[in-house]
């Protein structure tokens, strides 16, 4: 029996790559993108923003979450060309210089970070949560956390970091969405 690889050779010659302009972390970035280039590839491969992680590339792990016009979305499921004109914010654009976002600080302090691979996804989703809801309920926190797969922490410390962040914000410490 003869087989060749199941992936059929795809048609070539329609790769009309073009320069794509995206506003990323407040800066207009231009790079080459093909029609099939995902936002995740654009960020990681073209712009070198490797903070957004490629954990599954199928929309199942959440590690590539980025903010598109302020909302967390999965960069692996977005074509870069399809978000042209949007404001993209990645994990690299969350801290204000060296000053961490309150959630980032809480993630550090509460031991919510082990291997760190899901951390960008957790932070991106959390930043959005606190922008919408400075005092989220336990259920809202869990919904937010459930968007990203973490295999190390069991989520308890992450949840605690969210609770701590809410308290910090309520006490007027830090500013959600500091940029």
């Amino acid at each position: 029996m003869n087989t060749s690889n199941p992936a059929q050779p795809r048609e070539h010659g329609v790769n009309d790559a073009r320069v794509l302009a995206l506003r990323v972390n407040g800066v207009l970035q231009q790079a080459i993108a093909k029609p099939g280039t995902t936002l995740l590839e654009f960020l990681r491969e073209e712009l070198g923003l490797t903070g957004s992680k490629r954990g599954c590339d199928l929309g199942e792990c959440g590690c590539c979450s980025v903010l598109v016009d302020g909302r967390p979305m999965l960069a692996c499921l977005l074509l870069a060309a399809d978000v042209e004109g949007s404001e993209i914010r990645t994990i690299e654009g969350i801290a204000d210089g060296e000053v961490l976002h309150p959630l980032q600080q809480a993630m550090v302090d509460e031991g919510a970070i082990q291997c760190g691979f899901c951390t960008p996804g957790m932070v991106i989703n959390g930043v959005h949560l606190f922008e919408r809801t400075p005092t989220p309920t336990r259920d809202e926190i869990r919904t937010c956390i459930s968007a990203t797969v973490c295999r190390c922490t069991g989520y308890n410390r992450i949840e605690q970091a969210f609770v701590t962040t809410a308290a910090t914000l309520a006490a007027g410490g830090g500013k959600a969405g500091a940029q």
Partner: peptide
């Protein structure tokens, strides 16, 4: 599995 996409044109009317 190669998850890179290619081979199509993109239109956004």
């Amino acid at each position: 599995m190669n998850t890179q996409l290619s081979g199509f044109e993109f239109e956004r009317p």
